[in-house]
Design a protein around this nucleic acid. Sequence first.
DNA 1: TATGAATGAGGGTTCATTCAT
DNA 2: CATGAATGAACCCTCATTCAT
Lengths: 200, 200, 200, 200
Amino acid sequence: MGKADENKKLKMENLLNASFELFTSQGINKTSIQDIVNKAEVAKGTFYLYFKDKYDIRNRLIAHKSSQLFMQAYNALQEQDIHDFEGRLIFIMDYVLDELDANKGLLAFIYKDLSWAVFKKALTTPMSSEDVDFGKVYRNMIEESGLKFRDPEVMLFMIIELVGSTGYSSIMYNDPITLEDLKPHLELAARSIINQFVVE
Amino acid sequence: MGKADENKKLKMENLLNASFELFTSQGINKTSIQDIVNKAEVAKGTFYLYFKDKYDIRNRLIAHKSSQLFMQAYNALQEQDIHDFEGRLIFIMDYVLDELDANKGLLAFIYKDLSWAVFKKALTTPMSSEDVDFGKVYRNMIEESGLKFRDPEVMLFMIIELVGSTGYSSIMYNDPITLEDLKPHLELAARSIINQFVVE
Amino acid sequence: MGKADENKKLKMENLLNASFELFTSQGINKTSIQDIVNKAEVAKGTFYLYFKDKYDIRNRLIAHKSSQLFMQAYNALQEQDIHDFEGRLIFIMDYVLDELDANKGLLAFIYKDLSWAVFKKALTTPMSSEDVDFGKVYRNMIEESGLKFRDPEVMLFMIIELVGSTGYSSIMYNDPITLEDLKPHLELAARSIINQFVVE
Amino acid sequence: MGKADENKKLKMENLLNASFELFTSQGINKTSIQDIVNKAEVAKGTFYLYFKDKYDIRNRLIAHKSSQLFMQAYNALQEQDIHDFEGRLIFIMDYVLDELDANKGLLAFIYKDLSWAVFKKALTTPMSSEDVDFGKVYRNMIEESGLKFRDPEVMLFMIIELVGSTGYSSIMYNDPITLEDLKPHLELAARSIINQFVVE
DNA sequence: TATGAATGAGGGTTCATTCAT
DNA sequence: CATGAATGAACCCTCATTCAT
């Protein structure tokens, strides 16, 4: 890789990092492109060499960070001795909730304006070489379980939406209950949802 | 009520109506205060006599419109011959989903930036004399059912978040499935969630 | 007229005057809206209360200034003892050329991007109460002459285009000849053009 | 010519061709240097090795294209059986007008900001080996006519300015009349102008 | 020679908010 | 109470030009 290419990659990473920090600390609406380039220490025009606008950079970050988060959870799962499908999914759920609880800025950033479409894309189309296709991982988990599901995608969709939206409220506002109080309810609900999709 | 007071109330209502139409048709971000006062046919300065900013007016509208929506559903329920608690909740759920499906602008407006806190407030603190306290209605429904629930508020929270977030995706993007396909899944999940809160 | 209305008119005149000075001294392309509002001593946003963009202000200025110029020429003509149509038109032509020669900034400004359409509109649709409809004046001149012309509008068009385009080159660059040397040629040509439109 | 020289000439021609297509199709103001180098398939920096800025390239193109246009007209004239001077000049005038009518982009490009100085230079100083000196051609035409003219250059100047400025308005806006309606008037006027320069 | 990433001043435009009337 | 002209900071984005490779 030439010096120019290295420099190029560096600028891009600076922009991504600066954006992420600003988006998670003060929100995307209150972050101007001027703020981003100031923090990244590049010129304004440089931003437009790499990204169309701040929503472009946001989408890429969501994809990258979500993917990262789920893969972290999956890697942690590997080190556990959990072998039933329900248990494994619930482990991931808990892991992700704890991570988001510890990093509320990330939660706010990922959650706002997040549609299932963007999220699915984020989880299934790796952005960089480090990202992994969580869609594949999920299909593997199902296969290994020996179970058969009607509409496994819809099942995941329902669990993620339930966990995401209730978790958001609990983590951000402790409303109507704290995350720790919410978890047992979520665990039960997740098990029910899984069961309703099992093909006997 | 004096003529001045009437006039005052009229201006306020004009502003609320104009805002609602604009927010639901083009979104809050793309609606300027100039747009609102143009449509309401009052002067720009007048806006600030009644509201702090457009987010102030938005919060009031969300409260009012959500309350209205749930009360419509409840009134429709009264004309049905459904007497079991689960059935009644599911009827309300379906009714609300169908309304939002028919009025996607309203859905987008209510859903964006909507937190459980705002929502709960909307449902339990009537804004105008016409609004009704849905919290009371909900507690009545529970009483009439003869059942006993652990944390009825959390139960409602979980159902509303699940229905809301999955419904949003289905209605707005048909992703991952259409609303009609989603409904049976939601019905099953709602029943499971209700059951997990029943005190035997 | 209230104080507000007076102030309003004042701002507008400040903007028109500032624009005119800048357009004639440094050209429209090199004049930014920032320049204009600086010179007019109003805020940037104020500009957009009165004009759509700088081309809007330019068109209004061209209309106003051209009209003014032709009316000056016509007023000067009234004080002369010239009674034949050709002589009167040529007097106006000379007068306008001399004025433009004395004010090259105005010439550059009026001439650039000037289409007959804009020009005709400028001469026939008075912008302010002070402006006069030169179209009417021209028709009067024809009537008083006792002559009859085929297509009097086309006749005027040809003379103005010929005088304008050759005059521009002579005045601005003395190329291929000076204005004083050009005038006799223009006089002859104008007479020929007039004659070719006379209905015998 | 070495391979490097050939390559160099190729790049330059690519830039000229690309610029011309863009200038005539979308105007010079809306054409950026980025557009030009994209179309020419050379790097941005390369542009500056050959031209100072886009106005530099424009001037060269105007010279080249005008010259080309007049020579086309002259070549077409050679195939006609027209032998009187007036008739020949009018043939050229008509030919040029028809060409510009068929190619309005070219007209807009040549006409805007065109001064007689640039134009004369364009017609008399061949830019490339293919270009011909129209000045010489014009002097030849006069000589062949057997007539004698006072200030033949001024005569040409007046005709070109008259034809150019009225033709522009007719072709671009059909205002105040169409090109076909204008032509007879122009023919008469051109004959008058020629006559006023003849030395008896 | 040729490249194209980087620059950053400068462009036009919007809009929430104020305040004299 | 009501008005709406005026403000001016802040926005996004473009683009001619440079210069290290």
